[in-house]
């Protein structure tokens, strides 16, 4: 089992609903402080966006964050170097697109991730059918390959994805790109489909924008992912204090429902 999964299973075993905020690396010059603020406010893991020029699963907020980050000169190497200076007590999971990894080299990338505390990776345009080289590289470096499951995934694919995913399964609440929805959509159905074939932790993303959504999702999921709502604040100039209070509001909402 990957160390990411061990850590996240431990969160679940403690009776806590996992909170996973998303921070686009390089979106501001002090982005690593934002990661620290999120963890300080109660994040159990943090998704670290590595920017790509053509993010087809992302809506306007993450697109804009990626453009700002790229304009500032962010690269896979620069992100890994900055993460190496970070000391947070929560696992980090990369979120990027396959070309960034493919171009860098799958083995080099998995190695670089492992040496900068990135313990998993979500690559939405890399389905398991195309992922064999990446999965091998990750296995050698204790990097978890996290797969998304969509509301449109038929039962056989849900089973396949549940089997392939490591760390947690990412249940997309909606047929939508990030940041375009603001409700739980089909989340419960997707989570239940995963539960019927696997006991891996299941986190809900795409549509979680308020603490109320998080509280509702906590009733059936093991964790929630909050991306565009947080990045939207950061794009509008929010600093560590604002990020911390935003994440803490979600933490309180989740804790108000968790059963120890």
């Amino acid at each position: 089992m990957t160390s990411l999964e061990t850590a996240l299973r431990r969160v679940r075993a403690s009776g806590r609903t996992a909170l996973v905020p998303y921070v686009m690396a390089g979106v501001t010059s002090d982005w690593t402080r934002l990661v620290e603020a999120a963890v300080h406010a109660g994040a159990d893991a943090v998704e670290i966006g590595l920017p790509f020029s053509d993010p087809i699963m992302d809506g306007v907020v993450i697109q804009e964050a990626a453009l700002r980050s790229l304009a500032a000169g962010t690269t896979l190497d620069s992100v890994c170097a900055e993460l190496a200076t970070l000391d947070v007590d929560a696992p980090l999971v990369a979120m990027t697109y396959y070309n960034v990894i493919h171009h860098y080299g799958v083995e080099r990338a998995a190695h670089a991730f492992a040496h900068s505390s990135l313990r998993g990776a979500i690559i939405p345009d890399l389905p398991p059918e195309e992922a064999a080289p990446w999965e091998r590289a990750c296995a050698q470096n204790d990097v978890a390959t996290v797969y998304l499951v969509a509301p449109s995934s038929p039962p056989a694919r849900v089973a396949r994805l549940a089997h392939a995913t490591q760390g947690f399964a990412y249940a997309a609440a909606r047929m939508a790109v990030t940041g375009s929805a603001s409700d739980l959509g089909d989340a419960r159905r997707v989570v239940n489909a995963l539960r019927s074939v696997s006991d891996i932790p299941v986190y809900v993303g795409i549509g979680i924008t308020t603490p109320d959504h998080a509280r509702e999702a906590a009733q059936f999921a093991d964790g929630v992912i909050v991306g565009s709502a947080l990045m939207s604040l950061v794009l509008d100039g929010a600093g560590t204090t604002r990020v911390e209070s935003f994440v803490r509001d979600f933490r309180r909402a989740l804790d108000s429902t968790s059963t120890p």
């Binding site: 699963m57 396959y98 998304l148 499951v149 969509a150 995934s153 038929p154 694919r157 997309a172």
Partner: peptide, 9 residues
Amino acid sequence: RFVPEALMS
């Protein structure tokens, strides 16, 4: 076929 899961089906 490098597509997001939402487009796979």
